[in-house]
Simulated scan of single mutants.
Amino acid sequence: MILEVATLQIKPGLINDFESNFRQASKLLIKMKGYISHELKKCVEEENKYLLLVKWQSITDHLVGFRNAPEYQEWKALLHHFYDPFPVVEHYIDINLSQI
């Protein structure tokens, strides 16, 4: 399992529009091959900051499958104009703590 993590800075005054569009975009995401789940978290300290967490079966499902799918173009059209700056996306794996 891969955890995609993106910190999203939303342009001032656009929070409500972003959240509404994100609800629409979520419907695209959940149809994708390899998708497991996702969460959007709103920062308490910074009003325009969100954390997007998406679980994928593999990194390829995200970077190749989703990003090359027609749904990604819809995702971009719904969301990318809200970001400033554009988010850095990183991928994480679980660490087996029982072996530490």
Rank of each mutant, 00 (worst) to 15 (best):
residue 54 V to W: 02
residue 43 C to V: 09
residue 35 Y to S: 06
residue 81 H to F: 13
residue 87 P to T: 02
residue 60 T to W: 14
residue 79 L to K: 05
residue 25 A to T: 07
residue 99 Q to Y: 06
residue 95 I to S: 08
residue 75 W to N: 00
residue 71 E to K: 02
residue 62 H to W: 07
residue 68 N to Q: 12
residue 71 E to R: 01
residue 43 C to F: 07
residue 63 L to V: 11
residue 71 E to A: 11
residue 26 S to Y: 08
residue 18 F to I: 00
residue 7 T to M: 06
residue 68 N to M: 09
residue 90 E to Y: 00
residue 72 Y to P: 01
residue 87 P to Q: 04
residue 86 F to S: 13
residue 22 F to H: 07
residue 36 I to V: 15
residue 63 L to W: 05
residue 57 Q to G: 03
residue 42 K to N: 13
residue 86 F to P: 05
residue 78 L to Q: 03
residue 93 I to S: 11
residue 75 W to L: 00
residue 27 K to E: 11
residue 43 C to H: 15
residue 53 L to M: 13
residue 54 V to C: 09
residue 11 K to G: 02
residue 27 K to M: 08
residue 8 L to M: 11
residue 28 L to V: 05
residue 45 E to T: 13
residue 92 Y to H: 13
residue 76 K to I: 09
residue 62 H to I: 02
residue 67 R to S: 01
residue 85 P to K: 02
residue 91 H to P: 06
residue 74 E to F: 01
residue 29 L to W: 04
residue 79 L to T: 08
residue 99 Q to A: 10
residue 98 S to P: 00
residue 13 G to Q: 09
residue 87 P to G: 05
residue 53 L to N: 04
residue 41 K to M: 12
residue 91 H to I: 05
residue 67 R to N: 00
residue 47 E to T: 15
residue 67 R to I: 03
residue 46 E to M: 08
residue 34 G to W: 02
residue 13 G to I: 12
residue 81 H to N: 11
residue 69 A to Q: 05
residue 98 S to R: 06
residue 87 P to D: 03
residue 92 Y to W: 12
residue 12 P to N: 08
residue 81 H to R: 09
residue 63 L to Y: 01
residue 36 I to C: 12
residue 33 K to P: 14
residue 28 L to H: 03
residue 5 V to G: 01
residue 70 P to S: 10
residue 88 V to R: 14
residue 94 D to W: 10
residue 50 Y to P: 04
residue 51 L to C: 10
residue 82 F to I: 03
residue 5 V to A: 06
residue 85 P to W: 05
residue 100 I to V: 14
residue 86 F to L: 09
residue 39 E to D: 14
residue 19 E to A: 02
residue 53 L to C: 12
residue 25 A to W: 07
residue 85 P to T: 03
residue 29 L to H: 02
residue 38 H to L: 10
residue 14 L to T: 09
residue 62 H to G: 05
residue 86 F to C: 04
residue 74 E to M: 07
residue 97 L to K: 13
residue 56 W to K: 04
residue 53 L to H: 06
residue 91 H to M: 07
residue 30 I to K: 14
residue 6 A to M: 01
residue 49 K to M: 12
residue 91 H to D: 02
residue 71 E to G: 00
residue 60 T to M: 10
residue 60 T to R: 15
residue 6 A to T: 04
residue 77 A to S: 13
residue 53 L to P: 06
residue 98 S to W: 03
residue 97 L to C: 12
residue 33 K to S: 15
residue 28 L to Q: 06
residue 77 A to Y: 01
residue 78 L to E: 01
residue 2 I to Q: 10
residue 59 I to C: 08
residue 14 L to M: 14
residue 81 H to D: 09
residue 21 N to Y: 07
residue 57 Q to K: 15
residue 27 K to R: 09
residue 5 V to E: 07
residue 54 V to P: 02
residue 79 L to E: 04
residue 8 L to D: 03
residue 76 K to A: 08
residue 18 F to E: 01
residue 58 S to V: 04
residue 23 R to H: 04
residue 10 I to F: 10
residue 17 D to C: 08
residue 80 H to C: 04
residue 16 N to T: 14
residue 39 E to L: 13
residue 56 W to F: 09
residue 22 F to N: 03
residue 24 Q to P: 00
residue 36 I to Q: 15
residue 39 E to K: 15
residue 84 D to F: 12
residue 23 R to V: 03
residue 6 A to C: 04
residue 74 E to N: 05
residue 45 E to F: 14
residue 80 H to D: 06
residue 69 A to L: 04
residue 58 S to M: 08
residue 11 K to M: 10
residue 48 N to G: 13
